[in-house]
Design a protein around this nucleic acid. Structure first.
Length: 156
DNA sequence: GCCAACGTTGGC
DNA sequence: GCCAACGTTGGC
């Protein structure tokens, strides 16, 4: 059984439309240990991803991606010109591990954060918790299904 | 632009 | 190992 995740990206940096264009991408630039650990230790090929636009007005879930490859070193950590450069990451033992995700679906209806909040059945969804900032979050299967239904234009 | 939340850093 | 200072995230 696949697991499900929510992954945040600022659309000005990398949007779901960018993933439509690219078809697949390495999820570069995560510099939080808990988020890294989810990617490194818990994600598996085939897992489903809710592609969340943070910093958007409004923020929300734009569509779906899928985990295609796991356990990849994040190359931006080794690039002094990258904003994500981290000289502490040793190429022989990379500190920052990423996954590759592929485009699956753009929702006909963007599911905004206020809409997620308004749904009692989504109680407990991590992205709704106050003050949470982690950019990679596990999502319960039932929550994932309900968010997909909202994005596809059904009430539930 | 503001600010709450929270992770990281570094002095001790 | 503690914890204050600092930086970042991200909603509003």
């Amino acid at each position: 059984m696949p697991r499900y995740w929510l992954m945040k990206s600022e659309p000005e940096v990398y949007s779901l439309d960018d993933l439509v264009r690219d078809r697949r991408t390495g999820w570069e630039g995560v510099r939080n240990y808990q988020a890294r650990n989810y990617m490194r230790d818990e994600m598996a090929v085939g897992d489903g991803v809710l592609f969340y636009h943070s910093g958007a007005v409004p923020p929300g879930v734009a569509g779906l991606a899928r985990v295609l490859r796991v356990g990849l070193a994040d190359p931006t950590a080794f690039d002094p010109k990258s904003p994500y450069y981290d000289p502490r990451s040793d190429p022989a033992a990379p500190r920052w591990i990423m996954v590759e995700v592929g485009f699956v679906e753009k929702f006909p209806r963007f599911v905004s954060l206020p809409e997620l909040r308004a749904r009692p059945e989504l109680a407990g969804l991590a992205v709704l918790a106050r003050g949470q900032r982690i950019s990679v979050q596990p999502v319960e299967t039932e929550h994932y299904r309900r968010i997909c239904a909202l994005g596809r234009g059904r009430d539930r």
